[in-house]
Design a protein around this nucleic acid. Structure first.
Lengths: 130, 130
DNA sequence: ACTATACTATTCATATATGAATAAGCCAGC
DNA sequence: GCTGGCTTATTCATATATGAATAGTATAGT
């Protein structure tokens, strides 16, 4: 059962990766963009890392790649000269929107799979794992 | 909900990694060892890759690391000179057994989390995701 | 027997992730 | 105002994963 859950999650991730690939994104890139877009203002890389539950060095590399794609720009933080903030570019916003549409399709498919299931109890189980 | 499932699986994987780290294994290494031990005889790297649902180049690297750890040995296949088989060493068997005990602990914890849940319907949902 | 095709593992480039080590900047308490 | 201890991001080494390209081997069809 434990393995079934892990396997199912991997399958879901593959589907998301595949769907996002259609618009030139990966799941990691989409995740970072979504936090930045939702926040509405540049976030420091530390804040990004916290929101994505990963270590900072990972965010450094991810932002490198996002910047290379032109989806994000590194901007200085005038309040704290140690900090570097990631700002979404207009292209980044567009790309995020396209990614969100792709994710919704996968979500819709997933919801079908869940038909006939008690969502409440499933959610409780899943959120108990932490 | 989709994200909850993916997140829960990541948490489970982290727990497994942490538990296996206590005995000098990773989840990937444990997975490969378990297939080899259960099979009872050397498996070609292609067979390993299929059983682990990953690409062959991944298995090449994983077996490199397992070999460096002394847990596996590469042996020639007399039937097919293209093939390379991975044979578990005695140390590999021991390490696998230790890993299995660690995994069982995580499994037991996980089973507690599932108390009061209809295992049948959860299993059906999870196996429907493929 | 030869050839075309397919399969073997490996190597390489790359993406994602971690954790240790480093350099720079901030700030509390003296 | 200085110092010591945080925090900041980055770099490095490493692990895991993929997919493309390669070299060697097998095999089916001619």
């Amino acid at each position: 059962m434990m393995y079934s859950l892990v396997r199912a999650a991997h399958v879901l991730e593959s589907r998301l990766e595949e769907a996002l690939e259609q618009v030139g994104l990966s799941l990691a890139k989409f995740g970072a963009l979504s936090h930045l877009v939702k926040e509405g203002e540049p976030l420091s890389l530390s804040e990004c890392a916290m929101k994505m539950t990963c270590v900072r060095s990972n965010m450094t590399q991810l932002v490198d790649r996002l910047e290379a794609d032109g989806l994000v720009r590194r901007v200085e933080d005038p309040e704290d000269r140690r900090a570097v903030r990631a700002a979404v570019t207009p292209l980044g916003k567009e790309r995020y929107a396209a990614g969100a549409r792709q994710v919704e399709k996968v979500q819709a498919e997933f919801t079908k799979t869940l038909s006939g299931i008690d969502h409440g109890s499933l959610e409780r189980v899943l959120s108990a794992i932490r």
